[in-house]
Design a protein around this nucleic acid. Structure first.
Lengths: 225, 225
DNA sequence: GGGCAGTTTTCGGCACGCCTAAAAATCTTA
DNA sequence: TAAGATTTTTAGGCGTGCCGAAAACTGCCC
């Protein structure tokens, strides 16, 4: 049985970005709308409409005209492969090259489109095949299995809750940096002293220190036990 | 004094490839010809002609119509920056990720266009700021200084010469692999027993072993003392 | 110095990925 | 359910990087 060629062969960076975005937005009931994807990728609706056609022709997307698009099984496999690249790269940049968690996204975003399977394999091996990236997001296995991300936001905690930081949203580098400076590293133990009131900050205990976590940051932090 | 922005900002991968090629072929007396560059890059002459215009408009190239093109000082700085990226990446792939010297070129070729200055700096630091890449080619300094490559081919040696392998041409991965398998690593001590006769192999002593080096491989190996 | 070979540039065209404006379809709601 | 609002698609255009064919130029040789 010949080893499967990389799924992403012959896709352009743009196409890969569309596939990734479709995966990220897939929650949306039945298909991702043109305008939703356009906003997410900062392109116009016609650009998305056009790309839907191309990706459908490639068999990566099923497109109900005027309704929305969804990844096919093959499209999903491509997306998961891209996510594996991205998260492994982020982990490698942090662990091997000393990047901070707010610096990795942009670099990984560019690298993920050009690395070979060999590169992927080598950094995975060098890292000891990690299961999570620096933000706590799960790294898909080589076979494409992908766990779910922790999803209880710190804002959902009640006074007295004892929780551990499990994941931070990687959407905004500035917020990531701020969260890091507050000491909310992955694995940090947090006791919630006072939940947010009137959109104000959450008061927590972190080790011996008390901290006020602005609501805007607390929403980016996800916890578990 | 503000730090100079990266010279390669806003250049496309193609443009960077043209600049690199112009640097590589620069020996050619007065300017590189359209057809020479076209052949080197596997594109048509019209494509090169067009790109000469664009690079000239960017101030990276000076173009004598119908005569040929040469890098300007700025163009040369861009080329050296690309070469620094490329050679640092090759070294990193070998030293940090276990690539062999015949596997690195292609990967570096793709990565060099997308890495940030931060990435460059981090891998340079991780490697201890190496002066040579895995093939023995000099790595330009951050300031753009570039030594010359060793250039005495093994084929120029006479019987009895005691030399050391200093550089191997990185142009052909297959030859590189073959050269490695013969034991001609960088730094290897070689005694030339019998130079090539009638296009036949060169006989050398490598440690305790005698080796026949086919002429096609010997031409890729450069030596010094 | 004129012709001719070979090289270089111009011209017209194609695919890609993007855009705006306009047309078509769908959704909403009175 | 029909008009108006919204969304999506089509149409037409632009820049990049590539191509082949044709025109323009250079240089060499008689």
């Amino acid at each position: 049985m010949p080893k499967t060629a990389r799924l992403t062969s012959s896709l352009s960076s743009s196409q890969e970005d569309y596939v990734k975005a479709l995966y990220k937005l897939r929650h949306t009931g039945h298909g991702v709308s043109t305008s939703e994807l356009a906003e997410h990728l900062h392109v116009s609706a016609p650009s998305v409409s056009e790309m839907f056609g191309k990706l459908a022709a490639l068999g990566l997307v099923s497109h109900d005209r005027y309704r929305g698009a969804e990844l096919t099984e093959r499209g999903e496999a491509v997306a998961v492969e891209m996510i594996r690249h991205h998260r492994l790269l982020e982990m490698y940049l942090v662990k091997a090259l000393g990047y901070s968690w707010d610096e990795v996204h942009e670099e990984a975003e560019r690298l993920e489109h050009v690395i070979s399977e060999q590169f992927e394999e080598r950094i995975a091996a060098a890292l000891g095949r990690p299961r999570r990236d620096p933000h706590g997001d799960p790294i898909p296995s080589e076979r494409g299995d992908l766990e779910e991300s922790p999803h209880t936001p710190l804002t959902a905690c009640a006074a007295g809750d004892l929780v551990r930081v499990r994941r931070v949203s990687d959407s905004d580098p500035d917020k990531l940096r701020a969260i890091g400076e507050l000491g909310l590293q992955l694995g940090a133990d947090v006791e919630v002293l006072e939940p947010s009131r009137y959109e104000g900050p959450i008061t927590v205990r972190l080790g011996r220190r008390l901290r006020q976590i602005p609501l805007g940051l607390a929403r980016e932090v996800f916890v578990g036990d």
